[in-house]
Structures are given as structure tokens and as C-alpha cells.
Amino acid sequence: MQGVVKVNSALNMRSGPGSNYGVIGTLRNNDKVEIIKEVDGWYEIRFNGKVGYASKSYITIVN
């Protein structure tokens, strides 16, 4: 499943599904990501070869 990031500035990509996990990357508005699965309001995603987590509130699913 594919998604597009929708933010005003930047979205942190984290090592786990929560804001208490470390930041491993930064996503920008309109970045395209691969959604692997949903975990407690977060998406596990793949972006630029990295796998991490981002809040699903800021990612819109596209077909």
C-alpha cells in the first residue's frame, strides 16, 4: 500500500510506534512512502530504503 505525507513542515520517522521512540529520519510534505502495516495509530513504513514508523494522522493512502 502506498501513502503520501501531508504536513506543513516535517514529520519524524521513528524507530518504533510512538513519540517516545528515537527519530531515524525526516519526511517532508508530499513524500511518497510504502505502508507496511498499522500499529496503534502509527504506520510502519519504508522510505528511501529505511523502515520506521510515522503517525498515520499525517499520511494519506493513495492507490
Rank of each mutant, 00 (worst) to 15 (best):
T26V: 12
V39G: 04
R46G: 11
G41R: 06
Y58A: 14
V23P: 08
G16F: 02
L27R: 01
A54N: 00
Y53I: 00
I24G: 02
S15N: 13
P17C: 02
V7W: 03
R28H: 13
S19P: 15
G41I: 09
Y53L: 01
V39C: 04
I61V: 11
I35K: 01
V23R: 06
G16R: 02
R28T: 13
L27M: 10
M1P: 09
A10P: 15
M13W: 08
I59V: 11
I36N: 07
V4S: 07
M1T: 14
D40T: 09
E44W: 06
V62D: 15
K32S: 12
Q2G: 09
V23T: 10
N12W: 07
G18K: 03
D31S: 06
S57V: 13
I45R: 00
K37T: 14
E34Y: 06
I35D: 00
T60Q: 11
E44L: 07
I35W: 02
S9D: 15
V62Q: 12
V39M: 11
S19I: 14
S19G: 10
P17H: 02
D31R: 03
F47E: 03
I24T: 11
I45K: 00
I59E: 01
R46K: 14
Y58E: 13
D31P: 01
Y43R: 00
N12H: 15
Y53D: 00
G25Y: 07
G52E: 00
V51H: 12
D40E: 12
I61S: 06
S57W: 09
N12G: 10
A10W: 09
L27G: 01
G49W: 05
Y58V: 10
G3L: 03
A10Q: 13
G25V: 09
I45N: 00
F47C: 04
V5L: 03
Y58H: 15
K50H: 12
W42T: 02
E38T: 07
G18I: 00
E38Y: 06
N8Y: 06
K37L: 12
F47P: 00
N8G: 15
R14H: 15
K56C: 04
K6S: 13
N63M: 08
D40H: 11
K50R: 10
I24V: 14
V5S: 02
N12C: 04
G41Y: 05
R28S: 15
E34L: 06
F47V: 13
I45L: 11
K37H: 12
Y53V: 01
G52F: 03
R14Q: 09
N12V: 12
A10C: 06
R46P: 07
V62R: 06
K37P: 00
A10K: 07
G16L: 03
G16A: 03
K6R: 08
R28P: 03
I59C: 02
R28F: 14
G16Q: 03
V33Y: 02
I45M: 05
E44Y: 05
N63R: 04
L27N: 00
V62T: 12
I36F: 11
V23D: 05
W42Q: 02
P17R: 02
I24P: 01
V23L: 06
W42Y: 12
D40M: 08
N20I: 11
L11T: 09
V51N: 15
S9M: 10
I59G: 01
N20W: 13
S15T: 10
V4K: 08
W42A: 01
T60G: 10
V5F: 00
Y21M: 04
I45H: 00
V39E: 08
N12A: 09
T26K: 10
I45Y: 00
Y58Q: 11
S55Q: 14
G49K: 09
G49M: 08
R28W: 13
M13F: 12
V23E: 07
G52A: 09
V7F: 05
S55F: 09
S57Q: 12
W42N: 02
S19D: 15
R46H: 15
R14M: 15
E44C: 04
T26G: 04
Y58F: 12
K50W: 08
L11M: 11
G18V: 00
K6E: 11
K32P: 14
K6A: 13
I36W: 04
S9C: 05
I45V: 12
K56F: 04
Y53E: 00
K56P: 07
Y58L: 09
T26W: 08
D31E: 11
V7Q: 05
A10Y: 11
S57C: 07
M1A: 14
R46M: 15
Y43V: 05
I61G: 06
K37M: 07
